[in-house]
Design a protein around this nucleic acid. Structure first.
Lengths: 134, 134
DNA sequence: TCTTGACTTCAAGTATACTTGAAGTGTTAG
DNA sequence: CTAACACTTCAAGTATACTTGAAGTCAAGA
C-alpha cells in the first residue's frame, strides 16, 4: 500500500493542505495515520476518497450528503437501499443538470453569434442585426 | 409593454421576492419603476434579464461577471470585444464543465450498477462482486 | 548550531449568494 | 373600520465551503 505526505497529496490534486485538513476535520476522510512526529500519512484509500469527493463536488452533491454516502458505504448491509436511492437520485439530478446545461450552452452560443454579428456590423458600418436573427 | 408585480414575478420564476429586491440592490436589474404607492413594477425587460441571470447562474458565472456583462451590453460600442471575449470564455468553460459532468455521470452510474449488484448478492447470498466488475 | 521552511492545532475570518427580522406603510375582504 | 396581509427599507444574520492567522513543533541544509 502506497503512502503519501500532505505535500504529495496537495500537489497531486492541486488543492491547499488546509482543504485536506478541513475534509478530515469534518469527517469526510477515513482515519489519517501519523508519523512519529505527528505528520499526516495518506494512503491510496485517501486518494480514492478525494477523487470521489471531487466527482460529487463538481456534480453539486453537498458535503452533508457526501458524509452520509461514506457512512452508508462503511456499513453497507444496513444501508444498501439508502446508498442506491442516493446514487440513483444523484444520477437523475446530473442528467437533469446536463440537459439544462446544454440549453444554457445554446443560449450562450447564440449570444456569441449575436455579438460577433454586431462587431462585423460595427466594422463595416452596416445596420445592426436584431437578436432574433441568430 | 407588459408589466408585472413582484408577486407575479416571484410566482413566474418561483423565487422569493427578497431575491428580486436583492438583484435590484446589487445592480443586476434595469431600473425598476414604482406605483404611486411605491410598489415595484417589473417589465418584460426584467423577465429577459432574470432568464439571463438564471442561465448564467446555472452555468457558474459569478454575479460580479454578470454585472460586467450587463454593463458591457448597455454600452456595446465601447465593450464589444470585452463582451465577445467574456461569452467565448464562458462558452469554453461550459463545454469543459459538460465534459467533466459526463465523466462524473459515468462514475455515478458505475456506482449505481455496483451497489445494485451488491444488493442482489445480499438477497441471494452469493459472493459480493468487486468494484472492478462493473 | 542556526535559520528557513514545512508541518501542527485551534479559532476566527472570508466569499458568495442570498435570507430574515424589525419597523413601518399600503391594500383588501368582511 | 378594522383585521389580516402584502408591500416597503435597512441592517443584520445564515449556509456552504473553505481560508487565514497565531503560536508552537519539527526537519534539513549552510
Amino acid at each position: 500500500m502506497n503512502t503519501y505526505t500532505i505535500k504529495e497529496m496537495r500537489e497531486k490534486f492541486d488543492i491547499p493542505s488546509s482543504t485536506l485538513r478541513y475534509y478530515e476535520e469534518i469527517g469526510l476522510f477515513p482515519e489519517v495515520m501519523r508519523t512519529e512526529t505527528n505528520q499526516r500519512i495518506y494512503t491510496d484509500e485517501h486518494i480514492d476518497r478525494l477523487h470521489a469527493i471531487n466527482c460529487f463536488k463538481r456534480t453539486g452533491l453537498p458535503m452533508a450528503k457526501m458524509h452520509d454516502f461514506f457512512e452508508y458505504a462503511e456499513n453497507l448491509p444496513c444501508h444498501i437501499d439508502d446508498i442506491i436511492d442516493m446514487m440513483e437520485d444523484h444520477e437523475k439530478d446530473i442528467i437533469c443538470q446536463m440537459e439544462k446545461m446544454q440549453q444554457d450552452l445554446d443560449h450562450i452560443q447564440q449570444k456569441v453569434r449575436y455579438y460577433n454579428k454586431i462587431k462585423t456590423a460595427m466594422e463595416q458600418g452596416t445596420p445592426w442585426p436584431c437578436f432574433e436573427d441568430c
